[in-house]
Amino acid sequence: MKKFIVITLMLLGFGSQMYAQNGYSGIKGGLNLASLSTDGNSDKNLKMGFHAGVFTKIPLSESLAIQPELLYSGKGIKLNFDESMVADGEAKFNLHYIDLPVKLVFNLAEDFSFEVGPYVSYLMSANVDTDGEVFGADFTSEDELDRDHFNSIDYGFSAGLGFDLDPMIVGFNYNLGLKQVANSNDVAEDLIGDAKNMVIQAYVGFKF
């Protein structure tokens, strides 16, 4: 993990200088629609969040580039309990990650590209936000969760489309985790099983 971070930071810091004539760096951020691959999952379980960070696009040829990124990304799942006779509301299971994707960018046109590649993530913290009513009384809470219940490292694949509106970029990605979120033989695994992260992202960025 440390080696991956060092390599990514080197690419972010020096990549655009190596290919100054065509390469560029920038900032990007936007909406996350996150969920976990649990039984009974549905569109109602999508949790809204955000991601933000920096990137560098390093041309390898006219049609191909490599793009390392360093992002904060909010993941998790939203659980509704409005069908209960006792309680009505929702709970948000929040997972806060640092993502390090490295994408291959295929320039399909001058202003349109397809992006795909692996990512590695580091879990910074986890918490649960609850907002609802219990026996008719309002109830809200925010509880920190012990990171030891979860795998600190996640990894998976990201794929998406990007549009270059120089100096602005826009696009969307789908990130699919390949490692289960909960630690094995832990109470968290009893609750969410072998669930993995799934995130839909829409972003806006600016080149500099």
Rank of each mutant, 00 (worst) to 15 (best):
S84W: 00
F139V: 15
V105L: 03
N151Q: 08
D164G: 03
Y72T: 06
F139M: 12
F114A: 01
K179A: 14
E83A: 15
S141I: 02
A159E: 11
P167W: 02
D166N: 14
S73K: 00
F139P: 14
A87V: 09
E133Y: 09
S152W: 10
D154F: 08
M85I: 13
N127R: 11
L176F: 12
Y122V: 08
F172D: 09
Y174K: 05
D143Q: 15
I169V: 15
V116K: 03
S158H: 07
S141R: 04
D154L: 04
L145G: 08
M168Y: 11
S73D: 05
I153C: 13
K92H: 01
L108K: 09
L100Q: 01
N127I: 09
A126R: 03
N183R: 06
G171N: 01
G160R: 03
L123W: 00
D146V: 04
L95Q: 01
V120E: 07
S84G: 07
G156Q: 04
Y97H: 01
G89V: 00
K103Q: 13
I153V: 14
M124R: 10
D146A: 07
L178N: 13
D138H: 12
I169M: 12
M124T: 12
F157K: 05
N175V: 05
Y119W: 04
N151W: 04
Y174L: 01
F114W: 02
G177L: 00
D129E: 12
